[in-house]
Amino acid sequence: MSHPTFGAAVSIPAGASAVPRWGVLARWVTWLETRPDDERRPASSWWATYDLVATMTCLLVIVYAEREWFIRTPTLALGVAGVLHRPLARRAAYWFAMAAVLAVGHLFLWDRIDNHKYLMTYWCLALAVSFLTPHPLRTIAVNARLLIGLCFLFAAVWKLASPEFRDGAFFQYALLTDARFRGVADFIGGVSTSLATGNTTAIDSLRRFGGALDAVPLHSSQRIEWMARFMAAWTILVEGAVAVTFLWPEGKGVSKVRDFVLIGFLITTYPITSVVGFGWLLVAMGLAQSTRTFAPVRPLYVLTFLVLPLYSLPLVRLLHRAVE
């Protein structure tokens, strides 16, 4: 398709319009703008990457949109249309329609939906807004980088501000009571499935209406405690690193390694908490903002996109059984 702004992403020299007027803030704002892509590569190469990003986003919406009919039906239709007819996903109107359905639908469920559903809405809106500009690819890249940076900044701040996260209590609770963590708790923590079931029963008894209990003991182990502390420290470290590297001025310092930090987060986090929808969204956004940091970074994003659904398999439990 011949798009009116085709190739715009390679046509503007770096910092051409940057005239710092507000000191440090203006310089930071200028720095945030993604560098123009490598001029040695043809524009079609960058649009091919965008097409991949658009397809990933459409698949994400098709598979992981909320199940309510007023969201599910229109997003399914739009998503399938975007996959089948690729030029559609290069139009602002298409993404505005998708964003509008998600925004209105999510408004009714605002306090019940997961945070990545918010991010999904922002992302579709960012794609829509970007196609109103003469430099859609660069605008998409800036939006993607800022959205990822802000998402992880808020996530890291929440965790740092939460005493029960910092001292490992959250992960201890999750390891001992959450079915998604059961394999790890069993294999590494030594808390068997039967003990974990006992923990679940303890919670039920605590919640039981009219019950007089105000405290119940949990089956745990020293290894679970250590693991919980390690997981808490690692999560704060890696999420903070993603926030810093994505919000750092483009092309400078730690910004150059941001793609690897994000992929590292995806690969180390989702085997345990397999929220594939969130992972796919981060991959699509990561791919959209990836510049010439490292040659293999884009294939790595694609590989991560393919690998994430496999994490839904009960790998740890299977490994445990094999070891036994």
Binding site: F154, W158, F165
Partner: peptide
């Protein structure tokens, strides 16, 4: 007292 897990603040997994 909105739960940290919901509402678009990215506070999921920060609290029990």
């Amino acid at each position: 007292a909105l739960t940290p897990w919901k509402g678009g603040g990215f506070g999921m997994v920060a609290s029990v």
